[in-house]
Design a protein around this nucleic acid. Structure first.
Length: 435
RNA sequence: GACCCUGUCGUCUAGCCUGGUCCAGGACAAGAGCUUUUCAAGCUCUCGACACGGGUUCGAAUCCCGUCAGGGUCACCA
């Protein structure tokens, strides 16, 4: 059995989005599963529309997703090859030339002969086409560049691609390509056509309709693992009730024959849920690495006085509460900034009443603590409210707002413990004075 | 329009190949509750689907046909 070789063939005429990356992912995971090779082929034959910024973005996105390739090729460097093979077909009488206009150069066109063409598709089974419905195919355009179908077939054959795994939208290209394989005398690869990802509003993904760039998801604070996991579940299921599945495990379980035939819509709510799951379960050190640049960018911390250990423990406090990484700076600001940034509504609601006495009494208790940890802090607080004969809520909420400026966040005693005695006292005292 | 693909909860899906164990299972979302110190997380529960019509069969989500619906492709773009 030959080694499995698959390819992902993006065209650098736009960013890598959900659709493309899903195709890349399924190719990559199939290669991993089969211990084969994942080839990246840049289809940059359209010189006008291809741009290096798109190429860079595609490569960056693939790397970010963890879809590393084994080999990379550029079609723009293989033009001679395409012409050479087209010339052969011409000599064999399988193709002819034609001028677009009097002053243009000749294009090379493949002559289609009527016949039935059967496609064997790993996902869909057999599909039959009638070649009499297919027009003669241009191989080399009058500008000397190859057409997509010709370059694609030649490259797939020459690069020894064993499995062509691509989007559903290529099904109707397949009979044309099969004709070219036959004309060129190459063996057919296996085909597998993945269902498309549709826009929420229906129809194809487009710039206007949900074709969010992978780089955008990255900027929004999604973890690549979460995105990959979610993409994988679009069209494939690891089992009856598995949702979170580590990629290493997915590689082992992946089976192309069990890929769905039906188009899917990207569920952003589920992606959010999944991202939270991945953040929550990730190593805090790793999350800290990702979040520190955001803190620096928002000027919440400065490079000079970055306290990594403290940042990591702050991450631990907030991890289960994060849907995206980007939420971290705002949620965590009170732990880093000198001055608390108050939510005006929260301040009005919980701090408009004079709590000087209660705050002072609490500070007294904190001062008397032998050990300053979450449990002791809570005990001392419970004693206090018992003494004052009030409900815990009546004091917990105001203190939380006083310390963090917010009504939401981690448990109060954890917050106090994390902030430390001095900062807690200072923040409470300041408000106690002001009344 | 022609040709092709596809139709299970709002969404992602399991089940379909190898009919009965499915008055259809899980997850997200929504709603309710538990916990409680807010927000999350967690746990429990509720809502909610086999597109429709005909066959075949003792029996169909599962097999066949038709209808309808959605999608894709019909370039010297990729």
């Amino acid at each position: 059995m030959n080694m499995v070789r698959v390819r992902f063939a993006p065209s650098p005429t736009g960013y890598l989005h959900i659709g493309g990356s899903r195709t890349a992912l399924f190719n990559w995971i199939y290669a991993c599963n089969q211990k084969g090779k994942f080839v990246l082929r840049i289809e940059d034959t359209d010189k006008l529309r291809s741009e290096t910024k798109y190429l860079d973005e595609i490569l960056d996105s693939l790397k970010w997703l963890g879809l590393e390739w084994d080999e990379i090729y550029y079609q723009s460097k293989r033009f001679d090859l395409y012409r050479e093979y087209a010339q052969k077909l011409l000599e064999q009488g399988l193709a002819y030339t034609e001028k677009l206009s009097l002053d243009s150069d000749e294009a090379i066109i493949y002559k289609v002969t009527p016949q039935k063409i059967k496609i064997r598709d790993l996902i869909r089974g057999e599909i039959e086409f009638d070649a009499s419905e297919i027009k003669d195919q241009v191989l080399i355009k009058s500008d000397g560049t190859p057409t997509y179908n010709f370059a694609c077939v030649l490259d797939d054959a020459l690069m020894k691609i064993t499995h062509v795994i691509r989007g559903d939208d290529h099904i109707s290209n397949t009979p044309k390509q099969i004709l070219l394989y036959q004309a060129l005398g190459f063996a057919l690869p296996e085909f597998a056509h993945l269902p498309l990802i549709l826009a929420k509003e229906g129809g194809r993904l487009s710039k206007r309709k949900g074709a969010t760039a992978i780089s955008e998801f990255r900027q929004m604070g999604y973890l690549p693992e979460a995105l990959v996991n979610h993409l994988l579940l679009l069209g494939w299921a690891p089992g009856p009730d598995r949702q979170i599945i580590p990629i290493e495990e997915a590689i082992g379980l992946f089976d192309i024959k069990h890929v769905n035939k039906t188009a899917a819509v990207l569920d952003l709510d589920k992606l959010d849920w999944m991202n939270n799951q991945y953040i929550k379960n990730a190593d805090a050190e790793k999350i800290a690495d990702l979040v520190i640049p955001l803190l620096l960018e928002k000027k919440i911390i400065q490079q000079e006085n970055l306290d990594r250990a403290y940042t990591v423990s702050t991450v631990k406090l907030l991890q289960p509460r994060l849907t995206t990484l980007n939420e971290f700076p705002e949620r965590a600001d009170a732990f880093f900034l000198k001055e608390v940034v108050f939510d005006p509504v929260a301040k009005e609601k919980y701090l408009s009443r004079d709590l000087s006495r209660e705050f002072r009494l609490f500070i007294e208790r904190l001062d008397n603590l032998k050990v300053f940890d979450t449990l002791s802090i809570e005990e001392s607080f419970r004693e206090l409210i018992q003494e004052l004969g009030i409900e815990s809520k009546a004091l917990i909420h105001p203190i939380r707002v006083a310390l963090t400026g917010k009504t939401v966040g981690p448990g109060l005693f954890e917050v106090i413990n994390h902030l430390g005695k001095e900062r807690t006292k200072e923040r409470l005292l300041r408000l106690a004075k002001g009344g």
